[in-house]
């Protein structure tokens, strides 16, 4: 009687183990995902993301950063007056000396961003880690931030969009700008423009944590003179340029 029950007990234990395993497994799997920064955790103010651009290394005519940005963020790449451009190559020529510089111009991720100040709904906002973003859920498309930005870094979506990158939601009637590829930065990756510039061998763009004295960008900023664009405005930009 007892012996005949043994296989049943074994079966029961087996089934129990499978059920318990099935119940625990997702938790174990999600544990791995949870090792990344949880959405509710928020960005940390112990970090300030920044970019140092060496205009001496930025090649004339090279648009690797622009192309990479367009691909990563699902932009059309068209350059009409109503098309979005999150990063553009700017050529500047000194009016008196005639000296020229090439540089990428993008959202400067200011510590005191005028776009955030003027936004009526708070859609333009700055994360704790210094990245300036637009909350697409509460942007009403008033374009006041575009009037306020000293760098002409923002674009308004003038037409319906299709085939978007799921990581980078965009929408007709909202304002948008460079996000420092926040979707990549949150996964400990570099912005697409920086990666492309390095891949092309120019090494003109350096991205990292300005608050970490051990980071390459912090060391470079100690070693070389760099400037803020429109530094007179006191915006404390996250993007700095050297060689101007």
């Amino acid at each position: 009687m007892t012996a005949s029950h043994k296989p049943e007990r074994r079966d029961f234990l087996k089934t129990g183990a499978v059920v318990a395993g099935a119940a625990i497994a997702p938790g174990v799997l999600f544990y791995g995902i949870a090792q990344g920064r949880a959405p509710e955790e928020g960005a940390s103010s112990l970090v300030r993301w920044g970019m140092l651009i060496d205009t001496g290394k930025c090649a004339n005519g090279c648009t690797a950063c622009v192309n990479a940005c367009n691909t990563e963020n699902g932009l059309s790449g068209k350059t009409g007056p109503q098309d979005s451009q999150w990063i553009r190559k700017l050529n500047i020529k000194h009016l008196q000396t005639g000296i020229e510089h090439n540089l990428p111009m993008l959202c400067q991720h200011c510590a005191n961003p005028p776009c955030v100040d003027v936004c009526p709904t708070g859609a333009s906002m700055k994360r704790a880690d210094g990245i300036v973003l637009v909350d697409r859920h509460i942007c009403i498309g008033c374009r006041y931030c575009m009037m306020a930005c000293p760098y002409k870094a923002r674009s308004f979506v003038h037409e319906p969009l299709a085939d978007q990158n799921p990581d980078v939601p965009r929408g007709k009637g909202c304002v948008e700008a460079c996000t420092f590829c926040v979707q990549r930065v949150d996964k400990d990756q570099q912005p697409a423009c920086v990666e492309a510039c390095n891949a092309d061998g120019h090494q003109a763009m350096l991205f990292g944590d300005l608050r970490n004295p051990e980071s390459a960008i912090a060391k470079a900023m100690l070693a070389y003179a760099s400037v803020e664009v429109r530094g007179d405005l006191g915006l404390n930009t996250g993007v700095r340029y050297q060689g101007i």
Partner: peptide, 10 residues
């Protein structure tokens, strides 16, 4: 954007 410079871009 750069006072004192002539600027061109796309």
């Amino acid at each position: 954007i750069f006072p004192g410079y002539a600027e061109t871009s796309s």
